[in-house]
Design a protein around this nucleic acid. Sequence first.
DNA 1: GTAAGTAGTATAACGAAGTATACCAGTATG
DNA 2: CATACTGGTATACTTCGTTATACTACTTAC
Lengths: 126, 126
Amino acid sequence: MNDKELLEKSNEILSNPRNQDEEIQALQDTLYVLSGKWKIPIINSICNGNRRFRDIERSIPGITTRMLSKELKEMSANQLIKRTVVDDTPVIIEYSPTDYCHSFGSIILEMIKWGKAHRQRLREKP
Amino acid sequence: MNDKELLEKSNEILSNPRNQDEEIQALQDTLYVLSGKWKIPIINSICNGNRRFRDIERSIPGITTRMLSKELKEMSANQLIKRTVVDDTPVIIEYSPTDYCHSFGSIILEMIKWGKAHRQRLREKP
DNA sequence: GTAAGTAGTATAACGAAGTATACCAGTATG
DNA sequence: CATACTGGTATACTTCGTTATACTACTTAC
C-alpha cells in the first residue's frame, strides 16, 4: 500500500465509523432468521390479527397448507409465534405473536413502504 | 356471524385503517425483488463503498464467485447497480449503486438493527 | 345425509438456488 | 521466474424450497 492509498484508507475509516464486519454479520443473522418466501408474510398476517390456520392461509396469496404448516411449526419452535390449543368443542388452534415476533415490525413496515413506492414508480414510468 | 362478532369486526376495521390486501401485496413485491440469500448483502456492500468484484466478494462471508457473478449480472439488468468498465491498463470493472439501490437503505438499516439486537438478546439469556 | 368448513398430514416430484472446485488470460509484485 | 491478484467462466453436484394432489377426522349447517 503506497502513501496515497494509505491516506485514502485512513480517510475512509474516519468518514465511516461503522463497523463493516459487525454490520454484515447482523444483516446475515437477520436474513437467516427470515429466510424463505413465507416467514415475513406469516408474521405480518399474525401481527395483523389473524389467529387461525385458515385465516392466515387465506390472507397470504399463493401459500399452500403444506408450507404454512411447515413454517408455523418451525416458527413455533423458534419462539416467533405461540400455538395455543383452545379446548373448546371443536378444538380451536390459535397462533399468536410473541414479543420476538413484534420486533420485526419496523422491518416489515419498511418493506411495505418500499413495495408501495415500487408500484408507484412502475405506474409513473412503465 | 352474531351481533358480538359483528361489533368486534367493525371495531377492528375502524381501529385498523390499513388496507390488508394492498400491504401483503407490497410486502410480497419487495420480497420478490430481494429474494435469495445474497442481494441484500451485495446492495449493502456496494452502498458501503465497495466497488470492485473481489472487494465485494471479500466483504460478504460465504459467497462464491459464481453466486456473486450471477447476482451482479441480474442486478445490473434490473437497474439496481451499474457496471462500468474503466479503460485503464489493466481494465478495471466498477460496480456502483443506483438511486434505486439506495432506496433499500431503510430496510437494510432496520435489518442490521434487528440483527444486532438479536445477538444482544442471545448474549443476555443464552 | 350431504356439502362445506377446520386443522392439518402424507407422498411424490420438480426445479431453482446454492456449493465446490477448477480453471483462464492478463497484470503486477518480489 | 514464481507467486498472487483481477474479473470472472465452466462443470458437476446437492439440497431443499415449493408445488400438486389427495386424504383424515371432526363439526356445523342445510
